[in-house]
Design a protein around this nucleic acid. Sequence first.
DNA 1: CCTCTTTGTAAAATATACTTGACATAAAGT
DNA 2: ACTTTATGTCAAGTATATTTTACAAAGAGG
Lengths: 64, 64
Amino acid sequence: MKNLRLKAARAARDLSQQVLADMVGVSRQTINAIEKGDYNPTINLCIAICRALGKTLDELFWKQ
Amino acid sequence: MKNLRLKAARAARDLSQQVLADMVGVSRQTINAIEKGDYNPTINLCIAICRALGKTLDELFWKQ
DNA sequence: CCTCTTTGTAAAATATACTTGACATAAAGT
DNA sequence: ACTTTATGTCAAGTATATTTTACAAAGAGG
């Protein structure tokens, strides 16, 4: 399923997928795939994304 | 660096690495490596571990 | 002692996260 | 019209997460 919380948090900071990808050191396609929900990123990448967006793991990646 | 919060949470529930590994569907070595801090598990595995131990991502995997 | 459980560790193989390069589309600006 | 930016998607390759098999050491209990 899509990760809309991530998409929203990125939008709230007005960052493109490309810019966020550069900030965390991965390719744009990786960010796109995570938002699309295709796969299963590593925890270190999730943490880097959270830091870039000023959120925590629970806020962006925890599934109730 | 070691993940001592994970080790402590597992100890608090009196689970061996093997039993936790079975609960979340990975090998014992994978749990051992995560506690040892060798590597970088996927987010879905982290979530499964959190569920098994009654913790959240922030409690076990967030780095301040 | 002996056995069983737990943990630590290692090497080789397999599955999959992630990259690179590319193409398509839609929206915004000139 | 043309260009630029943002997003979506795909296929082939590379890096690495995870498995399997195996061995060693320490502690608990019989």
